[in-house]
Amino acid sequence: MTFSVKRFMAIFQKDLKDLYRNLYISSTALMPLIFAVIYSRIGEMPLAMHLFVITLSLALVGTFLQCAIIAEEKEKNTLRGLMLSPATLTEIIAGKSAVTIVITVIVTAVSMFIMDFSLSGRGWLIAGILLSLIFFIALGTWMGLITRSVVEASVYILPVMFIFGMANMFIGLADQFSFLQVLEYTPGIQLEEIANLSEAGAGFDELWKPFAIIGAWVVVTLVLTAVTFKKRMMD
């Protein structure tokens, strides 16, 4: 299968223009920054709290934004137009994800700057964040494909945001509510694991497990997205 950079760029540029004029979606992207400002004011922040804001940025911007973009394309019947054009599945998904990736990276970077958290010398964590970004964007794409409108997507995304975006916060309650232990397998907690292990000087022989768990999430969401996209090409 060929990949046309021109078609990818056409979709990317269109989304950038469209998003610029979409206040509902673009204002949501500011939410993690508000959290970053609030947390940065409470003094010395533990690593877990930094990672909570980073995960929230990835989920709130990466997943929600992507979900809303795709859901709106479905709602307005514009996705079918793209599907009937020469653009391939990969070009459409990549083009539509590119804007979300750019905005997510910017918001996450600004959040870290506000919290005075540096990624310098944290190579494993950077790799973990990038892998998680793929998961959160694929999750948003899939959620957008299974919902019929932006309003429906906004409702469906809430529990997902709680599970994947705020797992780092809810995991503290796992001692009282044992069912919450399942959150240990979410990418947010695995990011924390990567950060803690690498801070302790661990090598890949110990770090492979959290990476494998996040990688498994990536594979599952990518497969779900591809299967659902192909289904949505047909009535």
């Binding site: 056409a10 979709i11 269109k14 469209d18 004029r21 979409n22 307005k76 514009t78 079918r80």
Partner: peptide
């Protein structure tokens, strides 16, 4: 068939 409502006619066709 749908169009991008926030964009101009030209931007829709340019895509």
């Amino acid at each position: 068939s749908g169009l991008y409502a926030r964009l101009t006619i030209y931007d829709n066709l340019k895509l």
